[in-house]
């Protein structure tokens, strides 16, 4: 699986989780979407997103780093930085 494909798959799964937590349509979520400004996520949502992403990718996401992610794209990159192959394994 190429790097582009892996990034696309991780994005697809992140988008699914964000939609599930924030109860919005997946079509409203892009790589550029900002959690607070565009998707109206509050602090409780941020914690929920963290827990749900950990569940989705079956891994611990380093809390401090992940809580500072501002956009969906940054989340995708963060997960890829934690181990790209494992992320889609």
């Amino acid at each position: 699986m190429g790097e582009t494909d892996i990034r696309a798959e991780v994005f697809q799964r992140v988008r699914k989780v964000v939609a599930e937590v924030l109860k919005i349509g997946e079509d409203q979520i892009t790589l550029e979407s900002r959690y607070q400004e565009d998707l109206k996520a509050d602090s409780f949502d941020t914690l929920s997103l963290l827990v749900a992403l950990e569940d989705e990718f079956d891994r611990t996401l380093e809390d401090e780093g992940s809580l500072q992610l501002a956009t969906v794209g940054e989340t995708v990159d963060f997960i890829l930085s934690q181990g790209a192959q494992a992320a889609v394994g």
């Binding site: 914690l47 963290l50 827990v51 950990e54 569940d55 079956d58 891994r59 611990t60 809390d63």
Partner: peptide, 15 residues
């Protein structure tokens, strides 16, 4: 086997 028997949830839960 000792390591396996130390069962723990894989992740912390902020809730």
């Amino acid at each position: 086997s000792t390591e396996r028997r130390l069962q723990a949830p894989a992740r912390a839960n902020p809730f």
